[in-house]
Design a protein around this nucleic acid. Structure first.
Lengths: 259, 259
DNA sequence: CTGTCCTAGACGTCTAGAGGAGTGTCAAAC
DNA sequence: GTTTGACACTCCTCTAGACGTCTAGGACAG
């Protein structure tokens, strides 16, 4: 059984933080393994001699850090680490598309997880400001909008929205729910837009409640945002893809020359 | 003055979430601008007819999302957006080093903020496991460790730790607190290690309490982690730099070919 | 005019207690 | 053997009140 210390009234930190620190230490040192159950609120009250709200506040602290998850009626558990998907920057290599694989599927193959896509929605709508800038069109210009959610081993890991100019992809299979082998990049190249390069802008933030829902992540879990712009050999922006990824599930790899 | 609704007892959401949602909406719609003061706990109690802890719980929700910051004795304020530092992938261009500028200074010039570095510490220590792997040396091999913290306009934005093999940089100015113009990469090139390429591994997570402290960020603010490995023309890893950045302050830009 | 002190108002922490809701177990009833 | 129900245990939400610390501004003494 887990051994915890006592509250030190001389310590300037308030009791709830001391309790949180002890539990955090237990988790990080391995005394509490991923998936293990923390002491119940009642047990913490009894052990430390504090009120319920104080014990809860300590737990709250750890939840905010994303270290633990509370399950109503069951207990509080150390968050199990999801398998990390490493995204190398060659994930859009033409060789993969030639083999009929979209980027997400190519990675799944390499990393050995079961890929999935759902909540696909294709429509036309006005381009939001940031997107329009990147596509170099006027704001609110009508563009093709492709939304979808990616799953790894059945767990949602990423939501993505692609925006494509109508002159580039209008009327092509890009506007179908299933764009066919190789994904939309393959269709763009079919349509004569040979892809030359990509830029990605990477940031991180806390998710909106909607995003938390779609990615099935608890409070205290940040998201990685990646906005990718694809350019063809003419230097024209042919797609902007706005993605939101569950941060614990991802590691992005980039490679660039020192020049 | 801000207009807020009422609690709907028919709504399945608990009151504190309803209150949080109303405040969130006010923030996102612009009704409460960045820096604006939220209603005090007493005002929320009075307006919604709830106990103080319930009002606090609503505020707690928003703090966890990083939307607001509480200032003891003053009030709760909408978090002001820090200026974003955009990091282009040419930030390690040799031209900058030749001009005597380290990467951080080169960016500051371009983006127009006042750069700063403090808490510099240079030492030798055993290489941690992950670092040793990337440097392709045995774990616990003695390496040079350079720690420092970067400031933009006086505000800490990044903490970084570089690890370099002793055979590569031992006895060079890299081991001095001030490595001279162009930074340590310039010194590596002086020592005959011409840099060829970099890899960066980007992730995001919640900060540890230590990191929160060093970066002076409140709860609910995630960090971006970037581990950069520098390779010389011989293909040898000559430096691993482990950085932790305050997420709201950064946007990383990468550029890569479609191949 | 200056500096000190006081005070109101704000958030921080803790206590004590209550009812609610989800989960799992086990014994009784069928 | 299966189902049902009671119950214990868990976390969730809310109330009410107390005291502490910090901030800002006004009153007051020097």
């Amino acid at each position: 059984m887990l051994q915890l210390g006592e509250i030190d009234r001389a310590d300037p930190r308030p009791p709830y933080r001391q309790i949180a620190a002890m539990l955090r230490e237990a988790i990080e040192s391995g005394g509490l393994e991923p998936g293990a159950k923390l002491p119940s609120e009642a047990a913490l009250m009894e052990h430390f001699g504090v009120a319920r709200m104080t014990a809860r506040q300590a737990i709250q602290e750890l939840r905010g850090e994303g270290l633990v998850i509370a399950e109503h009626g069951r207990g509080v558990f150390v968050r199990p680490m999801p398998p990390v998907r490493r995204l190398a920057s060659d994930r859009f290599a033409r060789a993969h598309r030639a083999a009929g694989k979209a980027a997400f599927l190519a990675e799944a193959d390499k990393a050995g997880y079961q890929p999935g896509v759902d909540r696909i929605r294709v429509a036309r709508a006005g381009a939001p400001k940031g997107i329009a800038e990147r596509l170099r069109v006027e704001a609110e210009t009508e563009v093709i909008v492709r939304e979808r959610r990616y799953l790894a081993n059945g767990r949602p890991v990423e939501i993505a929205t692609s925006y494509l100019p109508v002159p580039v992809a209008g009327g092509t299979p890009v506007e179908d729910v299933d764009p066919g082998p190789g994904g939309i990049y393959a269709r763009l190249e079919d349509a004569g837009h040979t892809l030359e390069r990509f830029t990605e802008e990477v940031g991180a933030r806390m998710p909106t409640p909607d995003e938390r829902n779609a990615l099935e992540i608890g409070p205290g879990v940040p998201v990685l945002t990646v906005v990718r712009t694809a350019f063809d050999t003419e230097g024209a922006a042919v797609e902007v893809c706005d993605t939101v990824k569950a941060a614990p599930a991802y590691l992005l790899e980039y490679d660039f020359p020192a020049r």
